[in-house]
């Protein structure tokens, strides 16, 4: 320690309260950052390796029906279309539910558990910005589960035969349908799962609640519609979130379900499913926003 006569005794303490001099990036940048970080978190990027296993494995499994279709095309030379785009989401519905059940609590549960919400809300964002950024991030992540396999199937179908361009042109009307259905289902599942996940800081139980919601509603709706043909049996299918998603998808693709399937037995108009999908997603969004609006630190 050497003493310097130049410095007054109190000087080392007098750092002053300095203001931040750099550029202030504002609300838009803050929201964008939450969105990007949440999107990364949805796949466990920047987390330990164990956090990456489940989301990545689910994306790979979701590609399985498309890979199966292309494998058959490669092995048999014949253009058998066993996997139709309108049916694709039904094949992987439990994988979709598991993805949101695993990752929605990951996006909101940690902030609840660690009480970091006040840190976010003291910045230049509104509370609704936080909730909406999380919602859009999870919905974007879900596009890897919904849109990606459809695109692989579409491109693969074209390249499986020898007539690449005519094939692509013929099934081109599917592209906007794929886009609309994938975005609609992703937003719906993200909204519903986040509305549940935001209620509890225990991530495991949030996951259980989300999966219970999808599985139980699906089974109950299925049991009701299988059991009879009265109107209330047919309306019972609307309890099943899976079937609401499926009905809306069929409506978007303008195809009719198999007469023997649950949707065929229910025989309800397509726009009803789409309207219910939108209504449930809005309800979930309201619940999610309310949860953050009402928060008092």
């Amino acid at each position: 320690m050497q003493s310097s006569p130049d410095l007054a005794a109190g000087n080392i303490y007098d750092l002053g309260y300095r203001r931040y001099q750099g550029a202030r990036l504002g609300r838009r940048q803050a929201v964008l950052t939450i969105y990007l970080q949440s999107l990364r978190a949805a796949f466990g990027l920047g987390r330990r390796p164990a956090a990456k296993i489940v989301p990545v494995a689910l994306v790979v499994l979701a590609l399985f029906p498309a890979a199966l279709r292309l494998g058959i095309a490669a092995a048999t030379d014949q253009n058998i279309r066993i996997v139709e785009p309108a049916n694709y989401y039904s094949y992987i519905q439990i994988l979709l539910a598991l993805f949101v059940a695993a990752q929605a609590p990951e996006l909101v549960g940690r902030d609840l558990r660690n009480n970091t919400r006040p840190l976010y809300f003291s910045r230049a964002i509104r509370r609704s910005d936080y909730a909406l950024a999380k919602l859009v991030a999870l919905a974007s992540a879900m596009l890897f589960m919904t849109a990606l396999p459809q695109v692989v199937l579409y491109v693969g179908n074209a390249f499986a035969g020898s007539h690449v361009w005519p094939e692509m042109r013929d099934s081109a009307p599917d592209l906007p349908r794929i886009a609309v259905s994938a975005v609609a289902l992703s937003l719906f599942m993200a909204a519903v799962s986040l509305a549940v996940a935001a209620q509890t800081s225990r991530r495991a139980f949030a996951a259980g609640g989300i999966i219970a919601l999808f599985v139980f509603s699906g089974t109950v709706g299925g049991v009701l519609v299988e059991a009879g043909s009265a109107l209330w049996n047919r309306l019972g299918i609307l309890i099943s979130l899976y079937d609401v998603m499926r009905g809306a998808t069929f409506w978007i693709f303008a195809t009719d379900p198999e007469p023997e399937s649950q949707l065929g037995r229910a025989d309800l108009p397509g726009p009803l499913y789409a309207a219910l999908l939108a209504a449930l997603a809005s309800l979930a969004l309201v619940l999610l926003l309310r949860r953050y609006m009402r928060f008092r630190p």
């Binding site: 489940v54 598991l98 999966i211």
Partner: peptide
Amino acid sequence: FLAGLVYVFI
């Protein structure tokens, strides 16, 4: 919990 969910449902 997640591993159990995967076992049960997948």
